[in-house]
Design a protein around this nucleic acid. Structure first.
Lengths: 214, 214
DNA sequence: GACACGACTGAACGACCGTTTAGCATCTTA
DNA sequence: TAAGATGCTAAACGGTCGTTCAGTCGTGTC
C-alpha cells in the first residue's frame, strides 16, 4: 500500500540520500549501490521506484528546485532576500545539503542548474530595479549583463568555496569564510576599486573596437 | 629510441589529447580508450608511457601549469597582465583548450586547480599593491580577502561561462560574451553600485556580531 | 481462502572501465 | 649478426557500473 503521508516514504528516503550523495560527489561519481546503501535498501529498489538513475536525478532536481523556490518566497519582493540570506547563513548546516546539490548542478551540465542560474539572474535583476527605484542603488548601463555578472560572483563563491576557504587559511568553506569574504564583496559594491575612469574607458574602447557596429 | 626533439613525440600527442578531453569532459568521464583513440594509438600505450591514468593526469597538470606560468610572464610586473589578457582574448580558440583544462581542475578536487587558484590570488594581490602604489587603485580594508574575492569573480566567470553565455542569449561562451560581460564588471569596479554605506555598515554589523572578538 | 498487487531482495547480465600480459617490429649496440 | 632494449598492439583480466529478473513477503480485495 503506497502511503500518502508526505515524505516519510521509502521513496523519499532514497531521494534524500541521492541528493546528499549527488551534492557531495556529483552525479556520475555517485553509484546506485551507494545511494541504496545510504538509504538502507537494495539497489534494485532504486530502479523500481525511479525507473533509472537519470529518473532519480530528475526527481532530485524537482525536489531541490521546489525547495529553493519555497525558500526564496513566492512574492517578487526583493526585500525578502536579506531575510532569506540571514536564514541561510544562520543555519548553514541545515541547508548545506541542498546548497551542495545546487553547486553540483550548476557546474555539471544539468537542466536544474540552468533553471537555478536563470532564476537567480531574474531575481537579481528585480533587486537591481527595486534598488534603483528606492534610490539605494545606482543606474547601471547594462542591467541584464550586470545581473548576470553579479550572479556569477555569488555562485562563483559557492562553486569555488573550497579554494576560498584554503586561500583564507580555513579548513573548510563555512560561516567563518563567508563572514570574512562578505566584507570585501560589499566594500567593492560600495566604494570603487579604481580611482578614476581610465580602466572603464579602456575596456569600452576594446569592446567597441571588437564590435564596430555595437 | 627516445627522441629528444621537444614535443612531437607520441608521448606528447597522448598528453595533448588527454588535456583536450579532460578539459572537455573532466577527468573521470574521459576514458583511457577515448584518449588513445584521439591520439591514434592503443590504450595499452597510454599506461606504458604514463604508468597509470593518474600519472597521465599529473603530466597534464605539470604541462598546463608550466604553460600558464610562461604565458603569465616570469616577472612580477602587474602591467604585463593587460598584455596577457589581450593576447588571450584575441586568440581565444588557441588557449581555450588549456582554459577548459584549468576550469575542470578548479572545480574538481585537483592539485593543479589548487596551485592555479593560489597563484592567481598571489598575482591579484600584487596587482592590488601596485595599483595602490601608482594611485590607480584605492586602499582596501582586507587585501588578501579582496584578492580572493576578485579571483572568485574572474574564475567564476570561467567556470560558469556556459550559464553566462545562455543568460546573455549567446550560444556558447566566446569572445562575444566576454566583451559584453566585461563592461559591467569594470563598471562595478569603477562606480559603486550602492549609493551610500548602509549596506556596507549592515554587513560589518552582522560580521562583527558573529565574531565578537574579531 | 484464493487471488492480485506493490514493496522489496539477491543474484545475475551485459557493458565498460583501468590495467596487465604476451608478443611483434624496429632500432641500438657490440 | 646476435642480443637487448624500446615503441607499440591485440587480447584478455578483474572489477564495477546501471539495470534486469525471478521470486519472496506482506497487505488489501473479493
Amino acid at each position: 500500500m503506497r502511503s500518502i503521508d508526505g515524505d516519510a516514504t521509502t521513496q523519499a528516503r532514497i531521494r534524500d540520500a541521492a541528493i546528499t550523495l549527488f551534492g557531495q560527489r556529483g552525479f556520475a561519481a555517485s553509484t546506485v549501490r551507494d545511494i541504496a546503501t545510504a538509504a538502507g535498501i537494495s539497489p534494485g529498489l532504486v530502479i523500481h521506484h525511479f525507473g533509472s538513475k537519470a529518473g532519480l536525478r530528475t526527481a532530485c532536481d524537482t525536489h531541490v528546485l521546489e525547495s529553493a523556490r519555497a525558500a526564496a518566497g513566492s512574492s517578487n519582493d526583493p526585500e525578502q532576500l536579506r531575510d532569506v540570506l540571514t536564514e541561510y547563513l544562520s543555519k548553514p548546516d541545515e541547508y548545506s545539503r541542498e546548497l551542495a546539490y545546487i553547486r553540483q548542478s550548476v557546474v555539471d551540465d544539468s537542466a536544474a542548474g540552468d533553471e537555478f542560474f536563470d532564476a537567480y539572474v531574474r531575481l537579481t535583476g528585480q533587486i537591481l530595479a527595486e534598488g534603483l527605484r528606492s534610490g539605494t542603488m545606482r543606474q547601471v548601463q547594462d542591467p541584464l549583463a550586470t545581473a548576470t555578472w553579479m550572479v556569477t560572483n555569488s555562485l562563483g563563491l559557492l562553486v569555488l568555496g573550497r579554494h576560498v576557504a584554503r586561500s583564507l587559511g580555513n579548513d573548510e568553506f563555512g560561516i567563518e569564510t563567508i563572514n570574512r569574504i562578505a566584507g570585501p564583496a560589499v566594500e567593492l559594491y560600495t566604494h570603487p576599486l579604481y580611482t578614476d575612469e581610465s580602466f572603464l574607458q579602456a575596456t569600452r574602447d576594446v569592446v567597441s573596437a571588437a564590435e564596430p557596429e555595437g
